Measured scan of single mutants.
Amino acid sequence: ENVVSAPMPGKVLRVLVRVGDRVRVGQGLLVLEAMKMENEIPSPRDGVVKRILVKEGEIDDTGQPLIELG
């Protein structure tokens, strides 16, 4: 899985990584606010952040691509 998608609709509060960062499975990639709760979205695998497809403050839909890993 190279693309991390939104598991729920919500607002992107914080992006915790930058392009080029090495990430490990379970590491937080970004924080979504949904139903007044903050949810940290973890990396599904080890890899390198290739692209960040959303910006802080954006509203996303379920299934929307958020981050691409390489």
Rank of each mutant, 00 (worst) to 15 (best):
E1G: 12
E1W: 14
E1N: 13
E1Q: 13
E1I: 14
E1H: 14
N2P: 06
N2T: 15
N2G: 10
N2L: 14
V3S: 07
V3L: 12
V3R: 06
V3P: 04
V3F: 14
V3I: 14
V3D: 04
V4D: 02
V4E: 02
V4H: 02
V4N: 03
V4K: 04
V4R: 03
V4S: 03
S5P: 08
S5T: 14
S5Q: 11
A6F: 09
A6G: 04
A6D: 03
A6P: 04
A6I: 05
A6L: 07
A6S: 11
P7G: 09
P7L: 07
M8L: 09
M8A: 08
M8H: 13
M8Q: 07
M8F: 15
P9C: 12
P9M: 11
P9R: 14
P9D: 07
G10E: 01
G10W: 04
G10T: 04
K11V: 10
K11M: 09
K11T: 10
K11P: 01
K11Y: 09
K11E: 03
K11L: 09
V12S: 00
V12I: 13
V12R: 00
V12P: 01
V12F: 00
V12G: 00
V12H: 00
V12D: 00
L13H: 03
L13E: 03
R14S: 05
R14I: 08
R14G: 03
R14F: 06
V15I: 15
V15F: 12
V15S: 00
V15A: 01
V15E: 01
L16I: 06
L16S: 02
L16G: 01
L16H: 04
L16Q: 02
V17C: 06
V17T: 02
V17R: 00
V17A: 01
V17N: 00
V17S: 00
V17Y: 00
R18G: 08
R18L: 08
R18H: 10
R18N: 11
V19K: 07
V19W: 03
V19C: 08
V19E: 10
V19A: 07
G20N: 06
G20R: 04
G20V: 02
G20Q: 03
D21G: 04
D21A: 06
D21T: 06
D21C: 07
D21I: 08
D21Q: 14
R22C: 14
R22M: 11
R22F: 14
V23A: 02
V23Y: 02
V23S: 01
V23R: 01
V23E: 02
R24E: 08
R24Q: 10
R24S: 11
R24L: 09
R24P: 02
R24Y: 11
V25F: 12
V25Q: 13
V25G: 07
V25I: 12
V25C: 12
V25P: 08
V25A: 13
V25E: 12
G26V: 03
G26I: 04
G26H: 05
G26L: 05
Q27N: 03
Q27H: 05
G28C: 15
G28L: 13
G28P: 15
G28F: 10
L29R: 00
L29M: 05
L29T: 01
L29H: 00
L29W: 02
L29F: 02
L30G: 00
L30C: 04
L30P: 00
L30N: 00
L30S: 00
L30I: 13
L30F: 08
V31W: 04
V31E: 00
V31N: 01
V31Y: 04
V31G: 00
L32I: 14
L32S: 01
L32T: 03
E33R: 08
E33K: 08
E33D: 07
E33V: 12
E33M: 12
E33N: 04
E33T: 07
E33I: 11
E33F: 14
E33A: 10
A34V: 14
A34T: 13
M35Q: 12
M35H: 13
M35G: 14
M35T: 07
K36H: 14
K36L: 12
K36T: 11
K36E: 14
M37H: 11
M37F: 10
M37Q: 12
M37I: 13
E38M: 10
E38V: 11
E38I: 12
E38A: 10
E38Y: 09
E38D: 06
E38G: 05
N39E: 10
N39I: 15
N39Y: 15
E40Q: 10
E40R: 09
I41K: 01
I41L: 08
I41C: 05
I41F: 03
I41Q: 01
I41E: 01
P42S: 11
P42Y: 12
P42A: 12
P42M: 11
P42R: 14
P42W: 08
S43F: 02
S43Q: 00
S43E: 02
S43P: 03
S43L: 02
P44W: 04
P44V: 04
P44T: 07
P44G: 04
P44F: 05
P44N: 05
R45S: 09
D46N: 12
D46R: 06
D46C: 10
D46Q: 06
D46Y: 08
D46V: 06
G47L: 03
G47I: 02
G47M: 03
G47S: 04
G47F: 02
G47T: 03
V48L: 08
V48S: 04
V48A: 03
V48G: 01
V48M: 08
V48P: 01
V48D: 03
V49Y: 00
V49P: 03
K50D: 06
K50P: 00
K50I: 14
R51A: 12
R51I: 08
R51N: 09
R51V: 09
I52E: 03
I52R: 01
I52H: 02
I52G: 02
L53I: 09
L53M: 12
L53E: 03
L53S: 03
L53N: 05
L53V: 05
L53K: 03
L53G: 02
L53W: 13
V54R: 04
V54E: 01
V54W: 07
V54M: 06
K55V: 13
K55A: 12
K55H: 12
K55M: 12
K55Q: 12
E56P: 11
E56Y: 09
E56W: 08
E56C: 10
E56T: 09
E56N: 08
E56L: 12
G57H: 05
G57D: 05
E58W: 14
E58Y: 13
I59S: 09
I59D: 09
I59R: 08
D60P: 15
D60W: 15
D60S: 15
D60V: 15
D61F: 15
D61V: 14
D61C: 13
D61I: 13
T62Q: 12
T62K: 13
T62R: 12
T62G: 09
T62P: 10
T62M: 13
G63N: 09
G63Q: 07
G63M: 08
G63P: 04
Q64G: 09
Q64I: 10
Q64K: 11
Q64H: 13
Q64S: 11
P65F: 07
P65W: 09
P65V: 10
P65D: 05
L66P: 01
L66N: 02
I67S: 01
I67Q: 01
I67W: 01
I67N: 01
I67C: 03
I67F: 08
I67D: 01
E68M: 11
E68D: 05
E68H: 09
E68N: 04
L69V: 08
L69D: 00
L69Y: 05
L69K: 01
L69P: 00
G70H: 13
G70M: 14
G70A: 14
G70W: 15
